[in-house]
Amino acid sequence: MRDRGETIGNGAIQLLLAVNAVIMIYPLFVMVASSFKTNAEIFSSPLSLPTHFSTANLEKVWTETNFVRYLANSVGITAASVALILMFSTLAGYAIARYRFRLSSLVLMFFLSGMTVPLKLAIIPLFIQLDTLGLVDSYLGLVLVYVAMGIPSAVFIMTGFLRTLPRELEESARMDGASELRIMWSIMLPLARPALVIVAIQNAVPIWNDFFFPLVLITSDNLKTLPQGLTVFVGEFTTDWGVLFTGLTLAALPITVLYIVLSKQFISGITQGAVK
Protein backbone atom coordinates (compact mmCIF):
# COMPACT_ATOMS: atom_id res chain seq x y z
CA MET A 1 0.00 0.00 0.00
CA ARG A 2 2.70 2.46 1.05
CA ASP A 3 4.78 1.51 -1.97
CA ARG A 4 1.92 2.23 -4.31
CA GLY A 5 1.30 5.59 -2.64
CA GLU A 6 4.98 6.32 -2.96
CA THR A 7 4.97 5.48 -6.68
CA ILE A 8 1.98 7.73 -7.32
CA GLY A 9 3.63 10.49 -5.27
CA ASN A 10 6.87 10.23 -7.20
CA GLY A 11 4.96 10.23 -10.48
CA ALA A 12 3.18 13.45 -9.47
CA ILE A 13 6.52 15.01 -8.53
CA GLN A 14 8.11 14.05 -11.83
CA LEU A 15 5.10 15.48 -13.64
CA LEU A 16 5.40 18.79 -11.74
CA LEU A 17 9.11 19.00 -12.58
CA ALA A 18 8.52 18.11 -16.23
CA VAL A 19 5.88 20.84 -16.62
CA ASN A 20 8.19 23.34 -14.95
CA ALA A 21 11.11 22.35 -17.17
CA VAL A 22 8.97 22.93 -20.27
CA ILE A 23 7.88 26.38 -19.00
CA MET A 24 11.53 27.28 -18.37
CA ILE A 25 12.99 25.95 -21.62
CA TYR A 26 10.27 26.30 -24.26
CA PRO A 27 10.36 30.15 -24.42
CA LEU A 28 14.13 30.02 -24.95
CA PHE A 29 13.70 27.34 -27.59
CA VAL A 30 11.15 29.50 -29.46
CA MET A 31 13.54 32.46 -29.21
CA VAL A 32 16.37 30.50 -30.84
CA ALA A 33 14.12 28.88 -33.46
CA SER A 34 12.57 32.24 -34.40
CA SER A 35 15.99 33.75 -35.00
CA PHE A 36 16.33 31.49 -38.07
CA LYS A 37 12.91 32.43 -39.47
CA THR A 38 11.87 35.26 -41.72
CA ASN A 39 9.51 37.86 -40.36
CA ALA A 40 6.63 36.49 -42.43
CA GLU A 41 7.26 32.99 -41.09
CA ILE A 42 7.20 34.19 -37.47
CA PHE A 43 3.89 36.01 -37.92
CA SER A 44 2.14 33.31 -39.96
CA SER A 45 3.35 30.20 -38.11
CA PRO A 46 4.94 31.23 -34.80
CA LEU A 47 4.83 27.75 -33.27
CA SER A 48 6.42 25.78 -36.08
CA LEU A 49 10.10 25.08 -36.59
CA PRO A 50 11.92 27.14 -39.21
CA THR A 51 11.49 25.56 -42.65
CA HIS A 52 15.09 26.25 -43.56
CA PHE A 53 17.90 27.76 -41.53
CA SER A 54 18.16 31.29 -42.84
CA THR A 55 21.12 33.32 -41.65
CA ALA A 56 19.73 36.55 -43.13
CA ASN A 57 18.81 37.88 -39.66
CA LEU A 58 22.26 37.13 -38.38
CA GLU A 59 23.88 39.02 -41.25
CA LYS A 60 21.57 41.97 -40.65
CA VAL A 61 22.46 42.10 -36.94
CA TRP A 62 26.16 41.79 -37.72
CA THR A 63 26.33 44.42 -40.48
CA GLU A 64 23.47 46.87 -39.92
CA THR A 65 23.68 47.37 -36.16
CA ASN A 66 26.25 48.31 -33.53
CA PHE A 67 25.79 44.89 -31.93
CA VAL A 68 29.43 43.76 -32.16
CA ARG A 69 30.54 47.02 -30.61
CA TYR A 70 28.09 46.60 -27.69
CA LEU A 71 29.33 43.06 -27.18
CA ALA A 72 32.97 44.15 -27.12
CA ASN A 73 32.15 46.97 -24.67
CA SER A 74 30.42 44.54 -22.32
CA VAL A 75 33.36 42.12 -22.45
CA GLY A 76 35.86 44.91 -21.76
CA ILE A 77 33.91 46.55 -18.95
CA THR A 78 33.11 43.24 -17.23
CA ALA A 79 36.70 42.00 -17.51
CA ALA A 80 38.22 45.24 -16.23
CA SER A 81 35.75 45.51 -13.33
CA VAL A 82 36.19 41.89 -12.22
CA ALA A 83 39.99 42.12 -12.49
CA LEU A 84 40.07 45.23 -10.29
CA ILE A 85 37.60 43.75 -7.79
CA LEU A 86 39.74 40.60 -7.49
CA MET A 87 42.95 42.60 -7.11
CA PHE A 88 41.73 45.19 -4.61
CA SER A 89 39.68 42.80 -2.48
CA THR A 90 42.44 40.19 -2.34
CA LEU A 91 44.98 42.77 -1.16
CA ALA A 92 42.60 44.16 1.46
CA GLY A 93 41.41 40.72 2.52
CA TYR A 94 45.03 39.57 2.83
CA ALA A 95 45.87 42.49 5.12
CA ILE A 96 42.85 41.85 7.34
CA ALA A 97 43.20 38.05 7.41
CA ARG A 98 46.97 37.60 7.77
CA TYR A 99 48.15 40.53 9.90
CA ARG A 100 47.08 41.72 13.29
CA PHE A 101 46.83 45.49 13.52
CA ARG A 102 44.92 47.91 15.66
CA LEU A 103 42.20 48.99 13.25
CA SER A 104 41.76 45.58 11.65
CA SER A 105 38.24 44.81 12.90
CA LEU A 106 37.11 48.38 12.26
CA VAL A 107 38.32 48.17 8.65
CA LEU A 108 36.51 44.85 8.18
CA MET A 109 33.34 46.36 9.66
CA PHE A 110 33.61 49.25 7.23
CA PHE A 111 33.78 46.88 4.26
CA LEU A 112 30.95 44.71 5.60
CA SER A 113 28.64 47.67 6.10
CA GLY A 114 29.16 48.42 2.40
CA MET A 115 27.31 45.17 1.65
CA THR A 116 24.07 46.67 2.94
CA VAL A 117 24.22 49.83 0.82
CA PRO A 118 22.02 49.84 -2.29
CA LEU A 119 24.27 51.93 -4.54
CA LYS A 120 21.41 52.49 -7.00
CA LEU A 121 19.74 54.80 -4.50
CA ALA A 122 22.93 56.89 -4.27
CA ILE A 123 22.95 57.37 -8.05
CA ILE A 124 22.33 61.14 -7.87
CA PRO A 125 25.43 62.02 -5.80
CA LEU A 126 27.35 59.32 -7.66
CA PHE A 127 26.42 60.97 -10.94
CA ILE A 128 27.48 64.40 -9.64
CA GLN A 129 30.72 62.90 -8.27
CA LEU A 130 31.58 61.31 -11.63
CA ASP A 131 30.56 64.47 -13.45
CA THR A 132 32.99 66.48 -11.28
CA LEU A 133 35.76 64.00 -12.09
CA GLY A 134 34.88 64.16 -15.79
CA LEU A 135 34.01 60.43 -15.77
CA VAL A 136 30.39 60.51 -16.93
CA ASP A 137 30.04 58.78 -20.31
CA SER A 138 33.35 56.93 -19.97
CA TYR A 139 34.41 53.32 -19.43
CA LEU A 140 36.39 54.27 -16.34
CA GLY A 141 33.44 55.88 -14.56
CA LEU A 142 31.27 52.81 -15.06
CA VAL A 143 34.07 50.42 -14.07
CA LEU A 144 34.76 52.35 -10.84
CA VAL A 145 31.09 52.13 -9.85
CA TYR A 146 31.09 48.36 -10.42
CA VAL A 147 34.33 47.98 -8.47
CA ALA A 148 32.84 49.94 -5.56
CA MET A 149 29.74 47.78 -5.69
CA GLY A 150 31.70 44.51 -5.76
CA ILE A 151 34.39 45.18 -3.18
CA PRO A 152 32.39 44.73 0.08
CA SER A 153 31.25 41.15 -0.46
CA ALA A 154 34.50 40.28 -2.25
CA VAL A 155 36.55 41.45 0.75
CA PHE A 156 34.22 39.45 2.99
CA ILE A 157 34.72 36.24 1.01
CA MET A 158 38.49 36.70 0.51
CA THR A 159 39.10 37.52 4.19
CA GLY A 160 37.13 34.48 5.27
CA PHE A 161 39.01 32.23 2.89
CA LEU A 162 42.51 33.61 3.48
CA ARG A 163 42.04 33.14 7.23
CA THR A 164 41.70 29.40 6.73
CA LEU A 165 45.12 29.00 5.10
CA PRO A 166 47.69 27.31 7.38
CA ARG A 167 50.13 29.63 9.13
CA GLU A 168 53.06 27.20 8.89
CA LEU A 169 53.65 27.89 5.18
CA GLU A 170 53.96 31.57 5.83
CA GLU A 171 56.17 31.09 8.91
CA SER A 172 58.69 28.85 7.23
CA ALA A 173 59.00 31.17 4.24
CA ARG A 174 59.58 34.05 6.63
CA MET A 175 62.31 32.04 8.40
CA ASP A 176 63.95 31.59 5.02
CA GLY A 177 64.01 35.35 4.68
CA ALA A 178 61.32 35.76 2.01
CA SER A 179 59.83 39.27 1.78
CA GLU A 180 56.19 39.90 2.75
CA LEU A 181 55.37 40.61 -0.88
CA ARG A 182 56.94 37.35 -2.00
CA ILE A 183 55.15 35.36 0.70
CA MET A 184 51.82 36.84 -0.37
CA TRP A 185 52.36 36.54 -4.11
CA SER A 186 54.06 33.17 -4.50
CA ILE A 187 52.93 31.23 -1.46
CA MET A 188 49.54 32.39 -0.19
CA LEU A 189 47.67 33.69 -3.24
CA PRO A 190 48.05 30.57 -5.42
CA LEU A 191 46.15 28.74 -2.67
CA ALA A 192 43.27 31.23 -2.83
CA ARG A 193 42.20 30.22 -6.33
CA PRO A 194 38.85 28.57 -5.39
CA ALA A 195 37.71 31.71 -3.58
CA LEU A 196 38.85 33.87 -6.50
CA VAL A 197 36.66 31.85 -8.89
CA ILE A 198 33.60 32.33 -6.66
CA VAL A 199 34.24 36.07 -6.33
CA ALA A 200 34.80 36.40 -10.09
CA ILE A 201 31.50 34.68 -11.02
CA GLN A 202 29.53 36.38 -8.28
CA ASN A 203 30.57 39.76 -9.70
CA ALA A 204 30.84 39.04 -13.42
CA VAL A 205 27.20 37.93 -13.83
CA PRO A 206 25.48 41.03 -12.38
CA ILE A 207 27.99 43.37 -14.07
CA TRP A 208 27.57 41.67 -17.45
CA ASN A 209 23.78 41.86 -17.08
CA ASP A 210 23.53 45.32 -15.54
CA PHE A 211 21.32 47.88 -17.23
CA PHE A 212 20.73 50.61 -14.66
CA PHE A 213 24.20 52.15 -14.37
CA PRO A 214 24.94 52.29 -18.13
CA LEU A 215 21.47 53.80 -18.62
CA VAL A 216 22.38 56.67 -16.31
CA LEU A 217 26.10 57.01 -16.97
CA ILE A 218 26.65 56.18 -20.67
CA THR A 219 25.18 58.22 -23.50
CA SER A 220 27.53 57.70 -26.49
CA ASP A 221 26.37 54.85 -28.67
CA ASN A 222 29.93 53.59 -29.09
CA LEU A 223 30.35 53.10 -25.34
CA LYS A 224 27.05 51.31 -24.70
CA THR A 225 26.97 47.85 -23.11
CA LEU A 226 25.06 44.88 -24.48
CA PRO A 227 21.87 45.14 -22.35
CA GLN A 228 21.78 48.89 -22.97
CA GLY A 229 22.50 48.41 -26.67
CA LEU A 230 19.60 45.97 -26.90
CA THR A 231 17.17 48.76 -26.03
CA VAL A 232 18.55 50.87 -28.90
CA PHE A 233 18.39 47.89 -31.19
CA VAL A 234 14.80 47.02 -30.25
CA GLY A 235 13.82 50.63 -30.90
CA GLU A 236 15.26 50.47 -34.42
CA PHE A 237 13.83 47.12 -35.49
CA THR A 238 10.43 47.25 -33.74
CA THR A 239 8.59 45.36 -36.42
CA ASP A 240 11.38 43.08 -37.66
CA TRP A 241 10.85 40.23 -35.21
CA GLY A 242 13.34 37.95 -36.93
CA VAL A 243 16.10 40.45 -36.21
CA LEU A 244 14.82 41.04 -32.66
CA PHE A 245 14.86 37.33 -31.80
CA THR A 246 18.31 37.03 -33.33
CA GLY A 247 19.57 39.94 -31.24
CA LEU A 248 18.13 38.44 -28.05
CA THR A 249 19.56 35.02 -28.89
CA LEU A 250 23.02 36.43 -29.56
CA ALA A 251 22.89 38.52 -26.39
CA ALA A 252 21.94 35.47 -24.32
CA LEU A 253 24.43 33.13 -25.99
CA PRO A 254 27.79 33.94 -24.34
CA ILE A 255 26.60 33.73 -20.74
CA THR A 256 24.38 30.70 -21.44
CA VAL A 257 27.31 28.73 -22.87
CA LEU A 258 29.53 29.68 -19.92
CA TYR A 259 26.73 28.78 -17.52
CA ILE A 260 26.22 25.35 -19.04
CA VAL A 261 29.95 24.61 -18.81
CA LEU A 262 30.34 25.98 -15.27
CA SER A 263 26.80 25.54 -13.89
CA LYS A 264 27.98 24.37 -10.48
CA GLN A 265 30.25 27.37 -9.96
CA PHE A 266 27.59 29.77 -11.30
CA ILE A 267 24.92 28.45 -8.96
CA SER A 268 27.15 28.50 -5.89
CA GLY A 269 28.56 31.90 -6.85
CA ILE A 270 25.17 33.55 -7.31
CA THR A 271 23.42 31.95 -4.33
CA GLN A 272 26.49 32.50 -2.13
CA GLY A 273 25.40 34.76 0.70
CA ALA A 274 21.84 33.44 0.72
CA VAL A 275 23.03 29.88 1.37
CA LYS A 276 25.07 29.36 4.50
Binding site: F88, F110, V117, L119, P125, L144, P152
Partner: peptide, 20 residues
Protein backbone atom coordinates in the same frame (compact mmCIF):
# COMPACT_ATOMS: atom_id res chain seq x y z
CA UNK B 1 47.40 46.58 0.83
CA UNK B 2 44.29 48.33 2.14
CA UNK B 3 44.51 51.62 0.28
CA UNK B 4 43.08 50.77 -3.17
CA UNK B 5 39.95 49.10 -1.79
CA UNK B 6 39.40 51.74 0.91
CA UNK B 7 39.89 54.58 -1.55
CA UNK B 8 37.27 53.23 -3.97
CA UNK B 9 34.85 52.64 -1.08
CA UNK B 10 35.24 56.12 0.35
CA UNK B 11 35.01 57.88 -3.02
CA UNK B 12 32.23 55.85 -4.60
CA UNK B 13 30.19 54.44 -1.71
CA UNK B 14 30.64 56.37 1.54
CA UNK B 15 30.77 59.88 0.09
CA UNK B 16 27.85 59.45 -2.34
CA UNK B 17 25.78 57.83 0.39
CA UNK B 18 26.34 60.68 2.85
CA UNK B 19 25.69 63.19 0.06
CA UNK B 20 22.45 61.41 -0.83
Amino acid sequence: LLTPALLVMVLFVLWPLLSA
